[in-house]
Amino acid sequence: MKRFLLYLTVAIITFTIGYNINLIYFSDRAPEQPINFSHKVHAADNSIPCLYCHIYADKSTISGVPSVQKCMGCHKIIKTDSPEIQKVVSYWEKKEPIPWIKVYNLPDYVYFSHKRHVKASVPCQRCHGDVAKMDRITRQTVIFGVPFLRVSPLKMGWCLDCHKNGAKEFIGGPVRNGTDCWTCHK
């Protein structure tokens, strides 16, 4: 009986650990998007700046996903024969927006402002990883071709770490009132 209890306890504990390891480090790794969009092609090969498509990042709390019109602006001419581009065209012709899957998702009670961070010249890569190397957007670093751990866990401790110490490189010191709860929660 005693032994059974021990086994049970061990099983429960390890089950929880396993569950949480997945949840914290492996969930929403690199979801398959409706269109196989490559940041590598756009940002690296053609060196399009981030703000060319994510037009609201320096104006609003959210960075904004490019509208279908924006995509079509270039792809009316460029690479029109690619099957992926034809998918975009079909969305455009159906007058439907593309239902992208959110990779970076914050809880409702966190009020993160892209604008403040862009204006403080925090590079996008600081939180979003080197997207220019990613064919499919992912929150994990790739080591020897194996996706491993997140670039940004999007946990509060990670935010505060930068607000307290890491921000030196951008604003020369800790963020002013950067640890006050009401800076990000309202």
Binding site: Y109, N177, D180, C181, W182, H185
Partner: peptide, 15 residues
């Protein structure tokens, strides 16, 4: 609930 640098009495729902 605590006081912040703006003289506000803060209520943190998550806590």
């Amino acid at each position: 609930t605590y006081h912040n640098q703006d003289g506000l009495n803060v209520q943190v729902y998550n806590r």
